[in-house]
Amino acid sequence: MIDWIGLGLLALAAFLLLLFIFLRRKTPAVVRRIEAYERLNRAVGLAVEKGTRLHISLGRGNLFTARGGSALAGLALLRRIVERTSVSDRPPIATSGDPTLAILSQDTMLSGYRAAGAEEQYRFTTGRLTGLAPFSYAAGTMPIAHDENVSASVVMGDLGAEAALVAESADREDNSLIAASDNLSAQAIFYASAQDPLIGEELFAGGAYTGAGPSHDASLNVQDILRWLVIVAILAGSVLKLIGMI
């Protein structure tokens, strides 16, 4: 038995992604301005100049569940941040609430330093598992903003209500907060806590806005096309329902 609809949609998305990666290698995408990512780019530069750290919270997204997507987006952003801050005296710190994610964050950081030709800068203690339960993760993450000379906090991944505690700890230290989550509760919290909140799929645009390469630009293009397809499908479904055909 084959699920043709699912397989077809997947094949379409894969084809479009490959096509746009090819196109974006020649002409980079023009993207709209997102204030949070502008702030992030400024924060990266400032951290290197001032000799402060960036703290990247990757959340508790288990990679074996649907929540892993946001964690992977956070890892892609971490990689770019590490590359861009590799000349800094104080390397960024990545915290996570899932052991697999913590291991991947260490590996991602090592890859970032290698790509920047600064492998000796890597410290395994900068990729940390701070807790396994939601609140123990928050409790382990909160002191970092205060203790580790952090100037900007990036919270990107799957978090629940505990996101408020993480955001508050960054705010108390007057750090820039760039925050996004795939969880609706956390999004509402970040809307109230962050200077420039990232809503919905903006979470996945981090790579494109930090120059992570054509595949990230292509992802945004394909997301736009698929979003229009979903809109057309919803409208067509509504009309068909209205005229009694389904």
Partner: peptide, 12 residues
């Protein structure tokens, strides 16, 4: 939106 983002991240 998040589902589409997750799909594309997975494909990457």
């Amino acid at each position: 939106g998040i589902a589409l983002g997750t799909l594309l991240t997975g494909l990457r």
